[in-house]
């Protein structure tokens, strides 16, 4: 005797097909969308926590805007966003003048590539009186051993000084502490008279075009205690400003 009829199997097969169809076309897409919505919701909660933290930190920074501006100025003096060799030259000149040393030749030798060998051009002979020459010659020098400094660029300089040794030492120690990040690569001290020396110092000034840290919540924290440390890096010269007096001559081509 036949136990199940063919209509029974058709009914079962029909229900199985409908079940597969419903699961495939409705339940799975709905489930996926639900999971996505849950994930989005969790992410949005994290985003809100992060943004709320940022807003709180920004609000607290806003209350110390004066200190923030001062700190920005100091760190920008120390590591500017472009070559800005002008303030470095002015600062160096002020420091050597204050210490009774003469700056003979001050030369900016150009961009320094990190990997190539040093090909500094021959130094010009010393000329009487302080002169400043800015040249566009490119100098390639090995990277200084100053640790990993991501994102920084360097410009070479070659300065020659004249004076006596104690004055030069005072100058050098002060110069090494100015508010501008630079590194000396070589120094040559030569005696030229009984109490006279000539010193040639080659080095690099650093600058950083872009901000390369992560723009996250943690990096919005400012350690204002560092401000006092940074202030120890003195600024000896008065920054040059186009607004200062002393501009304008009837005839710029006659001796001043």
């Amino acid at each position: 005797m036949k136990k199940y009829s063919s209509s029974f199997f058709i009914i079962i097969a029909g229900f199985i097909l409908v079940t597969i169809g419903v699961i495939w076309l409705v339940v799975i897409p709905q489930g996926k969308q639900l999971v996505k919505t849950v994930k989005d919701l969790q992410q949005s909660k994290r985003d809100i926590a992060d943004l709320t933290g940022r807003v709180e930190k920004i609000t607290s920074l806003e209350q110390r805007s004066e200190q923030l501006s001062e700190m920005t100025q100091i760190v920008s003096d120390y590591l500017p966003d472009s070559q800005k060799e002008g303030p470095f030259i002015v600062e160096t000149e002020k420091v050597f003048q204050d210490n009774g040393v003469a700056g003979d030749i001050m030369k900016i030798t150009g961009a320094v590539k990190a990997t190539a060998k040093q090909t500094t051009e021959n130094e010009e002979s010393a000329t009487a009186g302080a002169t400043t020459t800015i040249s566009s010659t490119t100098t390639s020098t090995p990277t200084p051993k100053v640790g990993g400094l991501p994102g920084t660029a360097q410009t070479g300089f070659s300065f020659t000084f004249k004076g006596n040794f104690p004055s030069f030492m005072n100058f050098l120690k002060t110069w090494e502490g100015i508010r501008r990040f630079f590194v000396l690569q070589s120094i040559q001290v030569k005696t030229t008279g009984d109490d006279e020396i000539t010193v040639r110092a080659d080095g690099m000034i650093f600058y950083k075009k872009q901000v390369s840290i992560l723009e996250n919540l943690e990096n919005l924290d400012i350690n204002f205690n560092k401000l006092e440390d940074l202030k120890k890096k003195n600024l000896y010269s008065t920054p040059v400003s186009p607004q200062e007096p002393g501009y304008g001559r009837d005839n710029p081509f006659v001796p001043f």
Partner: peptide
């Protein structure tokens, strides 16, 4: 300003 300060402090 905050990012600039921290970026420079990192290099310093």
């Amino acid at each position: 300003q905050a990012y600039l300060i921290n970026d420079r402090l990192q290099v310093i």
